[in-house]
Design a protein around this nucleic acid. Structure first.
Lengths: 197, 197
DNA sequence: CGTGCGATGTATCGGTCCGATACATCGCGG
DNA sequence: CCGCGATGTATCGGACCGATACATCGCACG
């Protein structure tokens, strides 16, 4: 992909959990990745393969391609999910690769995220319990809203964890909008067997 | 207050909507505010007034006090809420001052935030509608969760707006935990009459 | 028929903020 | 009596954002 496309893709995948990545972050990062050998850059060659709709000779786009080493490294990065993984951005990034990792990793990430949110939730409960009389009604209202959001996320994570343990793909609750079921489900319980080369 | 105390206070007030502010941000900001004349710094004098519980001669704390000019400026800042106000942090900060502004400002901020969240919501609906078949089941699940969160926040904001319009203080739904009703309600519909000096 | 605007696209720069770290004191429990 | 967690001030490097600049393309609208 080229940068612009990559950003749109990322926005589509992570838009639910964080804002779009800025170009001031994207392009330097791509160059760093290239310098480290994870990806390669290439000025667009006119006709590589499939241009079905509009092949109107675009301007100089730069196409980035992941290398074998890059795939290796990325897979490792996702598989060894540490606690730093569980903030919004980190969780989002790892979640974006869920369909490409094994169940054990998915569970580790989901449970780490749950712990993180539970901590947040306890903090809010503390405030609402202990410091309630010191705060004005508006602030209390904000805390209550935040607490509610935490509780909902924990419940959501618990559903995902339960599904994961039972080997099922994430269920699509019939209530919600837009959820037409397709066959793009993640790999059924079969694991990837790569450990450490 | 001194820095540490200030941070705890901010965390208690804004913990529901953003992470705690870092010291690397707090102390330089305090110094900038002092340089601009919004606040004053003072090394702690041993006995100013009320030390009821433990007056055990602390180490050199720095006490920051808002100046008259600072109050003026802050009030202006809150009152002239622009669109930049409506991201998480900006909204949180302005919300923390709700009990100290007038109803018109409160409404402006709430409605701005609502618009912001509605845009986010539309983005997610677009993804779920248009790009659904391109995304894996996990990503779709994340979008659905995010969409749900947006819808809930919009509903929450709408309640606050309705209450605001009817001149009532924010209601405390009897269901939630920790919400003991106290008399620290915001100023009843009476406005502050400051416009621009 | 032109023209202007929004989408596509690459790129940089200044400034803000975080995360880690350092250092010092105090009270408490083991 | 010793260490650890809370209180407290402070800095530094690095990551990231927001604004900006520049260039091309297609389409809508006058």
């Amino acid at each position: 992909m080229h940068g612009y496309e990559l950003r749109k893709e990322l926005t589509a995948k992570l838009g639910a959990i964080r804002a779009a990545i800025s170009y001031g972050s994207l392009y330097p990062t791509l160059r760093r990745l290239q310098a480290a050998g994870w990806i390669t850059e290439a000025a667009e060659t006119s006709a590589t393969a499939e241009e079905v709709p509009a092949l109107t000779s675009r301007r100089g786009r730069v196409v980035y391609t992941i290398t074998a080493e890059g795939k290796e490294r990325f897979a490792q990065l996702i598989a060894q999910a540490g606690p730093e993984t569980y903030d919004d951005t980190g969780f989002g990034v790892h979640f974006a690769f869920f369909a490409r990792t094994d169940q054990a990793t998915r569970l580790r990430i989901l449970e780490g995220r749950r712990r993180k949110i539970e901590e947040r939730r306890e903090g809010l409960r503390d405030v609402l319990g202990r410091a309630a009389e010191r705060l004005d009604a508006y602030t209390l209202e904000l805390q209550r809203h935040g607490l509610d959001a935490c509780e909902r996320e924990v419940r959501w994570l618990e559903e995902l964890i339960a599904n994961e343990r039972s080997g099922r793909a994430p269920t699509v609750p019939p209530g919600t909008a837009g959820g037409r079921r397709e066959d793009n489900s993640p790999p059924p319980p079969g694991e990837s067997r790569k450990e450490r080369p």
